[in-house]
């Protein structure tokens, strides 16, 4: 049985179809990434899985239960971090831990929070507010907040898009480390081909919107643990990367092809307006 079942989901806004009839399953403990152009509705699909938006048709089933709204079994890591700016680092994580464990005492909550703050390397920054942190550090808080509740499913919405390239690699490694220990089921949405190959078990490719469809799902058969350094010379990595980039360029042969040429030369799609 599929652990997380995206069951023929469609979404339209004001009569315009964003994507139609998207259907695939994610096994428990699997890391699946969706890549597609801006406007293909991948973030919308993520929000539907999170329960923050409703599908126009179809539904999402998580371990046998249809999703009807947000819940603690699905934690989101947001592109723009979405930390509470009036709370310290510690309090941001604590808000989630207390919500996940309402029966825990103060002490136990505090110890648990500290464990995850330490895990993302923010020891010493507990009393800082998000405004005093760099983008990379803010997303570390976002990861600590999400992992600390031990959700069944982690939903990563372009989590590294607003982080500078150098820091991005470091945090990706941290995500891999945390995920290897926790083995949550993950659905991630990204523009970044390298990131997708580094992290995923399978990669779902979406055609261009409006009216986007799921084109194919490709397995990433590179053994773990993967490191970015080894990946560069791996023939399977190069094959996958070319395959995905070709797909994206061809999908973009319609209107905005220029953007994707940049993407092909850098291996990274430009971050366009968020969908």
């Amino acid at each position: 049985m599929r652990f997380l079942d995206i069951d023929h989901v469609s979404k339209d806004f004001g009569g315009v179809s964003v994507f139609t009839d998207v259907a695939f399953g994610i096994a428990e403990g699997e890391f699946v990434t969706m890549i597609g152009h801006s406007g293909c509705g991948k973030s919308t699909l993520l929000n539907i899985i999170a329960g923050l938006e409703r599908p126009s048709a179809g539904g999402v089933v998580l371990s046998g239960r249809e999703i009807t709204g947000p819940g603690m079994d699905r934690m989101v890591v947001f592109q723009n971090f979405s930390l509470m700016p009036w709370m310290t680092v510690f309090d941001n994580v604590r808000l989630a831990v207390r919500a996940a464990h309402p029966d825990w005492g103060r002490r136990r909550v505090a110890e648990w929070v500290q464990r995850y703050v330490d895990m993302v390397g923010l020891t010493g920054a507990e009393t800082k507010r998000p405004a005093a942190l760099s983008g990379g550090m803010r997303q570390r808080v976002g990861l600590a907040r999400a992992f600390s509740t031990e959700p069944k499913v982690l939903l990563l919405d372009e989590p590294f898009a607003q982080i500078d390239a150098l820091t991005r690699g470091v945090i990706q490694d941290e995500l891999v480390r945390m995920w290897s220990a926790s083995r949550n089921t993950v659905f991630m949405v990204t523009h970044d081909v390298d990131e997708a190959i580094l992290l995923s078990d399978r990669i779902a490719l979406m055609t261009k919107g409006p009216g986007a469809r799921l084109a194919e799902i490709i397995p990433v058969k590179i053994p773990r643990p993967r490191t970015r350094a080894e990946l560069i010379d791996d023939p399977e990595y190069l094959r996958l990367r070319n395959h995905i980039l070709h797909f994206l360029v061809e999908a973009a042969q319609r209107p905005a092809a220029a953007e994707v040429e940049i993407a092909a030369s850098t291996g990274r799609l430009p971050s366009l307006a968020t969908d």
Binding site: A50, G51, L52, G69, P70, G71, M72, R74, M75, V76, F78, N80, S82, M84, W86, M87, L95, A96, A99, A100, T149
Partner: peptide
């Protein structure tokens, strides 16, 4: 909306949502 989304995902009670999110955000 992001803050309210976080509150929704964490399933904060009406009261806690008011005290921890709505009032400080609007303070």
């Amino acid at each position: 909306r992001d803050y309210l989304h976080v509150a929704a995902i964490l399933q904060l009670s009406w009261w806690r949502r008011l005290l921890q999110v709505v009032l400080p955000a609007a303070a």
